[in-house]
Design a binder for these strands. Structure first.
Length: 573
RNA sequence: CGGGGAGUGGCGCAGCGGCAGCGCACCUGGUUUGGGACCAGGGGGUCGGGGGUUCAAAUCCCCCCUCCCCGACCA
């Protein structure tokens, strides 16, 4: 492609609203343009990157035996009502009404794929099967941000597997999981498949494919010693067993008017002559399950609660419906008598007295002891893991890594078939059975931003060869004044193209500095610079964008040198 | 959805009651050519929208819209 014909202009300044490095550079280098909040267009360069990523995913899915199909973005709302996700995903569903009928623009396609393959996966003879689609999806994001990272319209590659039983599902899962790993290897970015929480999509075992990046909205815990890794939503920590007995004074009440936060309670109790820190407080968090049943969750006061699956925080507005609950003064004492379960984090199981609420307004207690002053029904993992916590597997310190979720694989099992009556097949004995599903998504349109984010340097973008829009950037210096430069540039442009190399040819009539800076900004991995100085002595300059390392090669050797450098860059992935 | 900020030419910005400007980009001509050149000329803006105040509004007041940031939320 000649740059005089390319539809793209580099910008010296990024739009003021672009915050993320990847966003700024992709706009400045002429890859994308914003159309609306969270809605982007891909210019030819950006589209080429997108298509390369798509191709990698497609090739690896195909190699894993998955079959590509295409599902509709426009879906009748009945599908979503049957699965119950008009409720669970209400906040992100884009709904629309057409001539009196209600539709949603699909944010994901579990319902649609089940509706689609119904009569084609009807027998155990048709299983196992894995299908996938690469297409645009929609989410009514409350707050789109970071350019391509969080958008309202985006492209996903989603695979769905169907199996007769759980064992089969696990095999299918493994197969797609491995395909994911190969795809990410080829993308040239560091990634970690981490244990994750299933969120609104449901299901059991699942992994997120995390790419460490400064711009990340997620964190995962990583043990540098044993390799344990899990999303912050799912990570556990190891707690030393400290059972035993110790003399704790009798529980005593302290007046704490208005101290409804941990912070203010600590301050007031300390001032009353009992010095303490938030770590000495027992945070008593009230949650409710799907049926409205209450439970309290105990964690040390300096830790953030992570409720177990199935529980949500009790809404402040309905606190008053339970006269024995006093916001800011809730305590575990006597909860069992109120039919409220008491769950405590493992770290609470230590022989010591705790400071906590008194179940009366404006009052706390000190020296509350488990087994004497209150009972715990069950100990479990209830805190959000923090940097420096101990690994649950080996006890070494964990570190939290900021990262972007680039893919997610789920073993859904029967989650959807249980709700959707058409998700059935005839088993070998003639009975009707539900198939076990897996679903697997890669954020295709998120990946150009992720890759750009982790590979860019102070000069601009810096693509891995596998996703770069072109492999070689041929920069002609003064070619309009030096016929030799023009001739050799043209020759190399056409011979490299004939050799199957993807070449972007900067044939613009611009100052050398502008062209060289643009080449660095655009980030194509190999630069071939042809100018009068070199040509006078029969050489051209070959540069690797990644490390700016350059060497001169003779005009005669240029083509083969470029071809081998491209091969070398592929080999380095 | 809560808090904060911003809307002036394609992009970045100034102007804040009295003729709508600057830099980049774009067009024409000329000079220049190995790390973001220069000279001369030129095109392009209902100043986000509506209402109001005023002799006069980009500028002051009211309402609305859009966008960005922080938070909440999150396949």
């Amino acid at each position: 492609m000649r740059m005089t014909r390319l539809v793209a202009k580099t910008l010296r300044e990024a739009p003021a609203d672009a915050e993320a490095v990847s966003h700024r550079l992709l706009v400045r280098a002429g890859y994308i343009r914003r159309i609306s909040s969270g809605v982007y267009s891909y210019l030819p360069l950006g589209f080429r990157v997108l298509r390369k990523i798509e191709s990698i995913v497609r090739e690896e899915f195909d190699a894993a035996g998955a079959q590509e199909l295409l599902l509709p973005a426009l879906q009748p709302i009945e599908l979503w009502e049957e699965s119950g996700r008009t409720k669970t995903m209400d906040d992100v569903l884009m709904r629309l009404e057409l001539r009196g009928a209600d539709f949603v623009l699909g944010p994901t396609h579990e319902e649609a794929v089940i509706a689609t393959v119904g009569q084609d996966i009807a027998s155990y003879r048709d299983l196992p099967a894995t299908v996938y689609q690469i297409q645009t999806k929609f989410r009514a994001e409350a707050r789109p941000r970071y350019g391509l990272l969080r958008t309202r319209e985006f492209i996903m590659a989603d695979a769905y597997s169907f199996d007769v039983d759980q064992e089969g599902m696990r095999a299918s899962y493994k197969s797609v999981f491995d395909a994911y790993c190969r795809a990410f290897d080829r993308l040239g970015v560091t990634y970690y498949p981490v244990e994750a929480d299933a969120g609104s999509i449901g299901g059991d075992v699942n992994h997120e494919f995390m790419v460490p990046a400064a711009i990340g909205e997620d964190h995962f815990a990583l043990c540098g010693h044993c390799g344990y890794k899990a999303n912050i939503e799912a990570a556990r920590r190891g707690v030393a067993d400290q059972q035993g007995t110790v003399a704790v004074p009798e529980m005593a009440e302290i007046e704490t008017p208005g101290a409804t936060t941990i912070e203010s309670a600590v301050e007031m109790i300390t001032r009353s002559g009992h010095p303490m820190t938030s770590a000495d407080m027992l945070k008593t968090f009230v949650g409710r399950d799907d049926q409205g049943g209450l439970a309290v969750f105990l964690v040390p006061g300096d830790r953030q609660v992570r409720l177990p699956r199935g529980y949500t925080a009790l809404d402040a507005a309905i606190f008053g419906d339970h006269p024995f609950l006093h916001r800011g003064y809730v305590a575990p004492m006597g909860m069992q008598a109120r039919k409220v379960k008491v769950y405590a984090d493992h770290s609470v199981r230590v022989p010591r007295g705790w400071t906590t609420g008194a179940n009366r307004p404006d009052t706390h207690v000190i020296d509350a002891l488990i087994g004497r002053d209150f009972e715990v029904d069950e100990f479990m993992d209830l805190v959000v893991v923090e940097d420096g916590d101990h690994c649950p597997q080996c006890g070494e310190p964990l570190s939290l890594v900021r990262s972007v979720e680039a893919g997610h694989t789920f073993q859904l099992g029967l989650t959807y078939p249980e709700k959707i009556s058409s998700a059935r097949f005839s088993a070998e004995d003639g009975s009707e059975a539900m198939y076990f599903m897996g679903c697997y998504g890669i954020g295709v349109s998120r990946l150009p931003a992720v890759v750009a984010e982790v590979t860019a340097d102070e000069l601009g973008l810096c693509w891995p060869i596998s996703v770069a829009p072109y492999q070689v950037h041929l920069v002609a210096i003064s070619h309009l004044r030096d016929p030799e430069v023009a001739r050799i540039s043209e020759e190399l442009y056409s011979s490299l193209g004939a050799a199957g190399i993807e070449v972007l040819f900067d044939d613009r009539d611009l100052a050398p500095g502008v062209k060289l800076n643009d080449a660095d900004l655009m980030g194509i991995p190999v630069q071939l610079v042809i100018g009068p100085k070199g040509i006078a002595s029969g050489v051209v300059e070959l540069k690797r964008r990644k490390d700016q390392s350059r060497r001169e090669v003779t005009v005669l050797d240029a083509e083969s040198a470029v071809i081998s450098l491209v091969a070398e860059l592929f080999a380095e992935l």
